[in-house]
Design a protein around this nucleic acid. Structure first.
Length: 424
RNA sequence: AGAGAGUUGGCGGAGUGGUCGAUCGCGGCGGUCUUGAAAACCGUUGACUGUAACAGGUCCGGGGGUUCGAAUCCCUCACUCUCUGCCA
């Protein structure tokens, strides 16, 4: 969530930032908020003043009663009745204003970093770099949804039967490949200094607000209404929320956590050829890395995370490219996002397999995630996260890119994890 | 799921209607002492809001109520613990 002090002190930058994201009526929204803020402070002032008076009278009454001056005390009581009524009215006004402001603030997305390109759609994203050779497949190469049938390693029909579309069943070498990737990713993360965590995959509403999925993406999460819990769309939610309401000792920074979880996405409104096979699922596995850093370190950290994610793709021998997302394509909460895409040779498409973002203080302000400066001031930290990596599209690319007439060759780095070198 | 107990500052733990934002202990920080450290002793140590800075206001699980006044009384919700039940 954007902070009011920032809105107040850097109004022009905020409006410019929102506009870069194609946020409509940015100037008007911000002006409205500032006006409310003004109002709020005025009402609060009046309220506090009356409250202060009332507090003093109460103390006075206490003293009088102690001294047995009952009549004087009664006179004072009468006086407070009016005060009380006025205070109550002001308090109601105040909380109404605060509610309105809160709602408005929840609707404002993060301000993009200056390096974020302007633009509306994925077309406008900037290609930062491309790495690796695009594989040339021989005649008769198959897309992954046919390969998985041919080798009987992932079964969509069975998933349909027991759950529904978008919930595949991994079998045999397919299941083994899942497990290998998860272990590989976690081992690499630990080597890179991340602490492994296994968080719950159901979270409460407060957690959803903390990382910004609520109220913005309400319809995208599965909601277990009987207990009012949400299935996580990413491990970012529980892992970052571990630090909700925490003032972190500076010595413990940066915090580096990694965790594997299943992720659940309703993908309401998604359709078309793009969603075939493993391209888009309701449930998938992902290893997520999360960092919490000092504000002045966060962009350096984002570059590190980006390099780390790229190192995984290199080890898996997948051709990839890195995109800097434009203002219109970035997620609500992000200030700067890099997407990593692998080339899926049989489909002839780039598939997003990771997204690494710096949220600056946007999540931290909702989370009340802070540290103390040397001068003793509490200040918001910066949060970052990235997929390292999401499995299904990695699997799709591995299957398609490495297919041969006699089977699918597995990347060398996975051999010890797999116990086999080839599918088929 | 049934019965009972509980939820207070980083932690432990007082406080049952009136200068209580909260006794005390531990921990943390600063100091005295010491070659250094420990011990001991002294001091200090919550967050939010607000202000140019003071002042002021709010916060004792969440919400609501009673009262001139609530951490303390009442209602309600959530969570935790113990016993019983069920269960990987």
């Amino acid at each position: 969530m954007l902070q009011l002090t920032v809105l107040r002190e850097q109004t022009d930058q905020v409006v410019a930032g929102l506009t870069k994201r194609n946020y409509k009526n940015a100037a008007r929204e911000v002006a409205g908020l500032l006006q409310l803020d003004q109002q709020r402070r005025q009402v609060q002032n009046e309220h506090d003043e009356l409250q202060s008076k009332a507090n003093n009278i109460s103390k006075e009454i206490g003293m009088l009663l102690k001294n047995g001056e009952r009549e004087k005390a009664e006179a004072y009581k009468a006086e407070t009745a009016v005060l009380k009524q006025q205070t109550k009215t002001l308090a109601e006004q105040l909380s109404a204003i605060e509610d309105t402001m809160q709602q408005a603030l929840y609707k404002l997305p993060n301000i993009p970093h200056e390096s974020v390109p302007a633009g509306r759609t994925a077309e406008d994203n900037e290609i930062v770099l491309q790495h690796g050779e695009i594989p040339q497949l021989s005649e008769g190469a198959l897309p992954h949804w046919e390969l998985i049938q041919k080798y009987d390693i992932i079964d969509f029909e069975l998933g349909n039967k027991i759950t529904g579309a978008g919930f595949p069943v991994y079998k045999k070498q397919g299941a083994r490949l899942q497990r290998a990737l998860i272990n590989f990713f976690l081992d690499e993360a630990i080597k890179a200094g991340y602490m492994e965590v296994q968080p719950p995959i159901l979270v409460n509403e407060a957690s959803g607000y903390g990382t910004g999925q609520l109220p913005d993406k309400d319809g995208q999460m599965y909601h277990a209404t009987a207990d009012d819990l949400y299935l996580i769309p990413t491990a970012e939610v529980p892992i970052t929320n571990l630090y909700r309401d925490v003032i972190v000792p500076v010595a413990e920074l940066p915090i580096k956590n990694a965790g594997h979880t299943p992720c659940f996405r309703r993908e309401a409104g998604s359709w078309g050829a793009d969603v075939r096979g493993l391209n888009r699922l309701h449930q998938f596995d992902k290893v997520e890395i999360v960092q919490i850093t000092l504000p002045e370190k966060s962009y350096e950290t984002l570059e590190q995370m980006s390099s780390y994610i790229q190192s995984l793709l290199q080890k898996l021998e997948l051709p990839y490219r890195v995109l800097r997302l434009c203002g219109g394509d970035m997620s609500f909460t992000s200030a700067l996002t890099y997407d990593m895409e692998v080339y899926s040779a049989a489909q002839g498409r780039w598939l997003e397999v990771s997204s690494a973002s710096n949220f600056e203080t946007y999540q931290a302000s909702r989370l009340k995630l802070r540290y103390k400066t040397e001068s003793g001031k509490t200040q918001l930290l910066h949060t970052l996260n990235g997929s390292a990596l999401a499995l299904p599209r990695i699997v799709a690319a591995i299957l398609e890119n490495n297919q041969t007439p006699d089977g699918i060759n597995m990347p060398k780095v996975l051999h010890p994890y797999l116990g086999f070198e080839k599918i088929g």
